[in-house]
Design a protein around this nucleic acid. Structure first.
Length: 434
RNA sequence: GCAGGGGUUCCCGAGUGGCCAAAGGGAUCAGACUGUAAAUCUGACGCGAAAGCUUCGGUGGUUCGAAUCCACCCCCCUGCACCA
């Protein structure tokens, strides 16, 4: 069989990827042979976001070390909703919607792990397969009997919901733990899966599964949780002004994705390199040292952005993201040729076509309509502070009423294009109507 | 069902008849400084370019005037629901 990398846990630990593990250190011993492990992803949208990247990449790390990864998509658990550390009860989605999301997630997850290799090829499973036909009485007798409500109520993950004034938890969400525990037990039965990994918020659910596998099948299985990704300034990781950073290129373009990582603050960037890339830890430490000795801008952000964008969007996505970034941030946009501009559009720079007739339009509402701002206020503010540039030229409030003059054909790049910059980082490409 | 508490602008949270588009904090956006950072400072932050318009669970009412008072309804939370 393929060699198993015994240093895996050591490496994970150096990366700061180990939050908590069950089994008092027995896990190291357990992983001296090739094992099967799983991680679950619930369909809460039609795409995963970068919050799921840490467990996803960790599955891959395990596979690279010789273990067999199982990616579980929660077709069943997604119907219920995980209450862990959620402040409020969530509304339910319809089974049809969830089923659609499950398919999308399966595809997405599949891109990160290897299904072709002989020894430890990955598999994707759906927990709906073993829960949809389960009847309530069987469930209550065979699964429910193994759980103590006293114990469940004391789980940290639901405590705030139960104790906090003004909140509560439905029986539906309360039961979530049992479903996830059942998954682990089931995968143990089916595939001899003996390890579950997940975010630190999953600790309660994972230990539930460890207990259930033991009680039902006398199975000795393990759990390992990964840290929640936090930012140095305390704000939520993975959100920006334009919303969540998704893994799906249709939701977050490779360019926007690349820019997200490029904008990582210094205080977080080395940690993120350890979390989100496969660069070896020594190499990351070397980057950090080199950056420290240099004045000015560190290299780490660029490396991080390149590595992660390549992992998620491939070489092509990365190339596109870099092309746009170079054109917009380190060149003179008026030098761009028509072909260059067309390429930027293909690469995913947000773009739209200007209306034929400008009457009744103001510059502000043209930009708002193009999606550059949610309302006119920020644009007005920007206009008043010389923060709107069209083809490199500053526009002020006085241009607002005369969009026809601003977007006249003789001012267009290559007779057809306008690059509008709002603030420092927001760009949009306009083309004239045919 | 009964009793009590509560529903305010993205979030938290003040406001209990006019001075309220509604304190404060957070988040977010823009500017300065920078490195397409951070920290800091400044400005914005319901909609509208503006005049102005529309908000405080819903509907109706009282009033010159309501987020604030009244009525009914909806939703959430807590407790009770044999003994009570």
């Amino acid at each position: 069989m393929a060699g198993v990398d015994m240093a895996l846990l050591e490496d994970l630990s150096r990366r700061g990827l180990i939050n908590q593990a069950t089994g008092d250190g027995e896990l190291t011993q357990h992983l001296s042979e090739s094992r099967t492990l799983y991680c679950g992803f619930d369909p809460t949208a039609d795409s995963l976001h970068i919050g799921s990247l840490v467990p996803l990449l960790t599955l891959k790390r395990f596979q690279m070390a010789g273990h067999k990864p199982v990616a579980l998509v929660g077709g069943a658990t997604g119907l219920i909703g995980d209450p862990s550390f959620k402040a409020q009860e969530r509304s339910l989605n319809t089974p049809e919607v969830i089923a659609g999301w499950v398919d999308k997630l399966k595809n997405q997850v599949s891109r990160f792990i290897d299904f072709g290799c002989e020894e430890n090829a990955a598999i994707v499973v759906n927990n709906l397969d073993w829960t949809c036909d389960l009847n309530v009485l069987d469930f209550l007798r065979n699964v429910g009997k193994h759980f103590s409500v006293n114990n469940m109520v004391n789980k940290e993950s639901v405590k705030q919901r139960i104790q906090r004034e003004g909140e509560g938890i439905s029986f539906t969400e309360f039961s979530y733990l049992l479903l996830q525990a059942m998954d682990f037990s089931e995968l143990y039965q089916r595939y001899n899966c003996t390890l579950q990994i997940g975010g630190s918020d999953q600790w309660g659910n994972i230990t539930g599964g460890v207990d259930l596998a033991r009680r039902q099948y006398r199975g000795k299985v393990f759990g390992l949780t990964l840290p929640l990704v936090t930012k140095a300034d305390g704000s939520k990781f993975g959100k920006t002004e334009s919303g969540t950073i998704w893994l799906d290129a249709k939701r977050t373009s490779p360019y926007a994705f690349y820019q997200f990582w490029l904008n990582t603050v210094d205080a977080d960037v080395y940690k993120f390199l350890r979390y989100f890339t496969f660069l070896v830890v020594d190499e990351i430490d070397a980057i950090e040292d080199a950056d420290r000795q240099r004045d000015g801008r560190p290299e780490a952000q660029g490396i991080l952005a390149r590595e992660v964008t390549r992992l998620v969007h491939g070489e092509e996505g990365l190339a596109a993201a870099e092309r746009i970034s170079r054109a917009l941030f380190s060149g003179d946009i008026t030098d761009l040729s028509a072909a260059d501009l067309e390429q930027l559009r293909l690469d995913g720079l947000p773009s739209s076509t200007l209306p034929k007739d400008f009457s009744g339009q103001s510059l502000i509402n043209l930009l708002v309509d193009a999606g550059m701002a949610p309302s006119g206020k920020p644009v007005k503010d920007a206009l008043g502070r010389s923060a709107v540039l069209i083809n490199g030229e500053v526009k002020g409030m006085d241009s607002n009423a005369t969009p026809a003059a601003v977007f006249s054909a003789d001012k267009a790049l290559s007779d057809n294009y306008f690059i509008v910059r709002l603030g420092k980082k927001k760009y949009h490409l306009f083309t004239l109507a045919d």
